[in-house]
Nucleic acid binder design. Structure first.
Lengths: 232, 232
DNA sequence: GGGACAGTTCGGTGGCCGCCGAACTGTGGC
DNA sequence: GCCACAGTTCGGCGGCCACCGAACTGTCCC
């Protein structure tokens, strides 16, 4: 795969739509993606095969279903970087009720591939900054007290997955499109999100990418960090 | 600009060739790029306009010349990320004498947008790791002693350029295509490279992207770091 | 086994876009 | 003023590729 080929994969409306949908970090079936992007099953099947051959997506077949997901964090960060280009143009026009309620749930909290985003993600990010666990002078980094805080919480910041030496930074600012604020990505963001799921601090709402903060999460996660309790 | 449009800009052989050439961090004229990519002046002109409109390139007109360069570090990192995808496929076949002498000069030392690459870049990167100024456990980061070393050398790690809050990490591993080794990018890599030019530690060889380490550079830069003196 | 359904393969079509030569504009040197 | 040269604009050509419908394979359920 060369630069041209990889870019070409993302240079198509349909394939890009697939990838953006998969940015929630979950596995979708081919049919779901086809409906989501408004194309026939035939087209979806072809395009998914291309994305998989190009190494952007990974597939898992289960019975008559073909599940696909992003091939890894590098792909997610690539897509985010490409999306965040230019003068951050146009906001999509207003939507129906059902749609806008889904959107507001996602605005409160959601996953952005493997880390937390939305108001929850931004809030956590701000809290860590306020408490000096993370520093944003000359770029984002974990401070010494930040490292000990993570150790004290028993949250492991996974070193790079065994086989391939990763270039993934410990901490990475991720600028999302709904909030215009930065939230924490990178290994630290992924570790926080993984822990939040494992300890029941957050849970999925239905089948979307939206998240709900549980009462356990308020008690053990956001209140200790000094976050205001969310409005709804 | 959307994801699709930005990706589309890089999904063309000619435009990609331009961007890869500009990865040396310097400004090229439209004609130089046309010859480099083997297309007519007409084609180069059109494609450059597209790249500029899309925000990937910046232009500067001087008399009858049109100089273009990458619009910023974010573009360089985007291109590197896109290039480093997939199983790092095929190495270009061998070249003529003139070409291969240029290549070996570039292998010794060159710029990779705004930081040092080639054997020089990798060597510096290794030396900083060996001395504990940089850590690569769970991702790359600058250690406390690393921060004081930079301060002691009076090398400023520039905070993000004023207007826009940058997501550029302090330290970023950059995996280059000639060396298969990682070298230092990010704000730290840029600061080192800038300093190396300012203090005369390195200089350009001719008009290419290749670098020569000066005797001053050996004395004040690589020897203090414990690098072996390069073969040639 | 039959029917519903998820996904795939294939052929044909339409549109987009990268390319060039030719004619043109503008700059610099003599 | 003239010529050389860098870059631009335009029209037209050619190739690539995303799309669909239709026919097919494979899975699950009754």
């Amino acid at each position: 795969m060369s630069l041209v080929q990889t870019a070409g994969l993302l240079a198509d409306r349909t394939r890009a739509e697939f990838c953006l949908a998969l940015l929630d970090g979950r596995a979708w079936t081919a049919g779901e993606l086809a409906r989501h992007a408004g194309v026939s099953a035939a087209t979806a099947s072809e395009q998914l095969t291309r994305l998989i051959d190009g190494g952007l997506l990974a597939e898992e077949r289960q019975g008559r279903h073909r599940y696909v997901r992003l091939a890894g964090p590098a792909v997610a960060s690539l897509i985010e970087e490409l999306s965040s280009f230019g003068p951050a143009g146009t906001r999509p026009r207003s939507a129906g009720l059902r749609e806008s309620s889904r959107l507001s749930a996602e605005a409160r909290g959601r996953t952005c591939y493997d880390h937390l985003a939305g108001q929850l993600g931004v809030g956590v990010s701000d809290a860590l900054l306020r408490r000096g666990l993370v520093s944003d002078e000359d770029g984002l980094s974990l401070t010494a007290s930040g490292r000990s805080w993570f150790a004290a919480q028993d949250i492991a910041i996974e070193p790079a997955p065994a086989p391939r030496r990763s270039t993934r930074p410990v901490l990475r600012g991720c600028l999302d499109w709904t909030e215009r604020r930065m939230h924490l990505g990178g290994l630290v963001g992924a570790a926080l999100c993984r822990t939040a799921f494992e300890r029941g601090w957050v849970e999925r709402i239905g089948t979307g990418r939206a998240l709900r903060l549980t009462t356990l999460g308020v008690r053990d996660f956001t209140e200790p960090l000094g976050l205001a309790r969310p409005a709804a």
